[in-house]
Amino acid sequence: SISSRVKSKRIQLGLNQAELAQKVGTTQQSIEQLENGKTKRPRFLPELASALGVSVDWLLN
Rank of each mutant, 00 (worst) to 15 (best):
S50D: 12
S1P: 09
A49H: 00
S4H: 13
I31V: 06
P42R: 05
Q33M: 14
K40W: 15
L52V: 01
E47V: 08
Q28H: 09
W58Y: 08
P42W: 15
G25Y: 04
L60N: 07
K9M: 15
R10F: 00
E19R: 05
G53H: 08
K38G: 11
K38Y: 15
D57R: 12
L15S: 04
K7L: 08
T39A: 10
A21S: 05
L15Q: 03
V6N: 00
S30G: 10
E19K: 05
G53A: 06
K40I: 13
Q29T: 11
K38D: 13
K40A: 13
K9D: 00
L60Y: 09
Q29C: 09
S3E: 08
E32A: 13
R43I: 12
L45M: 08
Q17A: 10
L45W: 05
T39F: 14
R10Q: 01
K40H: 14
E47D: 10
S50Q: 14
T26C: 14
S30N: 13
L15F: 10
G14T: 03
R41V: 14
R41P: 08
E35C: 03
L15D: 01
S8T: 11
G14I: 02
K38V: 13
Q17D: 03
L34R: 05
K38M: 15
E47S: 10
T27I: 06
K7Y: 08
L59F: 06
S8A: 14
R43E: 12
S50I: 14
I11R: 10
N16L: 07
S50C: 10
L59A: 00
P46F: 14
E47P: 04
R41G: 08
S8V: 09
A21D: 01
E35T: 02
S55M: 06
V6G: 02
A49I: 03
I31M: 04
G14S: 06
G37P: 02
G25A: 05
L52T: 00
G25E: 04
F44G: 04
L20P: 01
A49K: 01
A49Y: 00
Q17R: 15
S3G: 15
Q12M: 11
E32V: 12
Q33S: 14
W58R: 02
R10K: 00
E19C: 06
V54T: 08
N16Q: 09
L52I: 04
K38E: 14
Q28D: 06
Q33D: 15
I2D: 02
G53P: 00
K7W: 06
D57E: 14
L60C: 09
N36K: 11
G25Q: 06
Q29Y: 15
I11M: 13
P42L: 11
A51N: 04
V24F: 03
I11S: 08
S50G: 10
L45E: 02
G25R: 06
V54P: 00
A51S: 07
Q12H: 09
S30W: 15
G14L: 05
N16Y: 03
L52G: 00
K23A: 11
E35I: 02
T27F: 05
F44L: 06
Q22R: 13
E19A: 09
L13S: 05
T27M: 05
K9F: 05
V54E: 05
E19S: 07
A49N: 00
S4Q: 14
A18P: 05
A21L: 01
K38S: 13
S50L: 14
R43Q: 12
S8P: 02
E32W: 12
S3C: 12
G53V: 15
I11V: 10
L60M: 11
G37Y: 05
A49M: 03
V6C: 11
L60V: 11
Q29I: 11
G14Y: 05
P42A: 09
D57M: 11
G25K: 06
L45N: 01
S50M: 14
L13Y: 05
F44A: 03
S50T: 12
L60Q: 08
D57W: 15
R41F: 15
R10M: 04
Q17L: 11
R5D: 01
Q33W: 14
L34H: 01
R41M: 14
G37W: 04
Q22L: 13
A18M: 11
E19P: 00
L20S: 00
I11Y: 08
S55P: 09
E32I: 12
N61D: 12
A21H: 01
A51D: 02
D57L: 10
S1A: 10
L48G: 00
K40L: 15
G25M: 05
D57A: 13
S3P: 07
F44N: 07
A21M: 02
T39L: 15
Q22N: 10
K9C: 12
R5Q: 05
N61M: 11
Q28A: 12
S3R: 08
F44C: 07
K40Y: 15
V54Y: 02
Q33G: 08
Q12E: 15
T27D: 11
Q22Y: 11
W58M: 03
F44P: 01
K7D: 00
K9T: 09
Q33K: 13
A21V: 01
E47H: 09
V56K: 06
D57H: 12
V54G: 01
S55Q: 07
A21R: 02
S4N: 11
V56P: 08
R5I: 07
F44I: 05
L45Y: 05
S8Y: 15
K40S: 13
K9A: 10
G37H: 06
I31Q: 01
N36L: 12
L60A: 08
R43M: 12
V6M: 08
K23I: 14
F44Y: 13
S50P: 03
T26G: 04
E47L: 10
A21Y: 01
Q28L: 15
N16D: 11
Q22E: 12
N36Y: 07
E19M: 08
R10P: 01
A21N: 02
T26N: 03
V54A: 04
L45P: 01
V6E: 01
A51Q: 06
K7M: 08
E32N: 10
L59R: 00
G37V: 03
S55C: 06
E47Q: 14
R5W: 06
S8E: 12
L15V: 05
R10V: 01
L34F: 07
T27G: 05
E32F: 10
R41Q: 11
T27V: 05
N61V: 09
A51L: 09
K23H: 07
L20C: 03
L45S: 03
N36Q: 12
L52A: 00
L15I: 10
N16V: 05
Q28V: 15
K7V: 10
K9R: 15
L20V: 05
S30A: 15
S50F: 14
S8H: 14
Q29H: 13
V54D: 11
K7E: 07
